[in-house]
């Protein structure tokens, strides 16, 4: 997560996108991100996995990722090449899973109203803003300290490796 700047085209989705929509139950014996990625958000619209070939940022409404704790949802998005999800708000288990797996998740109130499906979007992590297609900038909520620690360690597994090898607390 040393990325300072993420740039990509946007897929806009609505409120309460649940984990069954992100990866339907019938694919849950799969754990390979690439394979899961072929079905990312298929529950919402079967055309989305195809679209994601050229979209790398999802802009969503409220409560993105609600429902099941399945980490497959995060793996599917990563496998489909999604680099970041910008939403009004996130469901909590999805949010933690995303952080732990290195999928950037940002809360940016009001972003969805100003962004159109297919727009180009720049996420400037250093300045803490989104740069919209129009050139307008929009701030996102700062990332909490404890979350940043995990992100900086390179995800929870990397943090875990350090702790196990150093007998850390």
């Amino acid at each position: 997560m040393s990325l300072r700047r993420i740039e990509g085209r946007v897929l806009v989705v609505g409120d309460n996108v649940d984990t069954d929509a992100i990866v339907p139950g019938r694919y849950l014996t799969i754990t390979d991100p690439k394979e899961l990625g072929k079905h990312a958000l298929e529950g919402l619209d079967p055309a989305i996995p195809g679209k994601l070939k050229e979209r790398s940022i999802i802009v969503a409404g409220r409560n993105f990722g609600c429902g099941s704790s399945r980490e497959h949802a995060v793996l599917a998005l990563l496998g489909a090449g999604v680099k970041a999800v910008v939403a009004e708000s996130f469901a909590r288990i999805f949010y933690r899973n995303a952080i732990n797996r290195g999928l950037l998740v940002l809360e940016a109130p009001g972003a969805r109203q100003k962004i159109t499906d297919g727009d180009k979007l720049v996420i400037d992590l250093e300045r803490g803003v989104l740069v919209l297609a129009s050139g307008e900038t929009l701030p996102f909520k700062p990332i909490a300290r404890e979350v940043l620690e995990i992100v900086e360690a390179g995800g929870l597994v990397e943090k875990l490796k350090k702790e196990l090898h150093h007998g850390g607390r």
Binding site: S69, R96, R101, L156
Partner: peptide
């Protein structure tokens, strides 16, 4: 509830 990574 937690994800699989946190469970590990």
């Amino acid at each position: 509830g937690v994800g699989s990574t946190e469970a590990a």
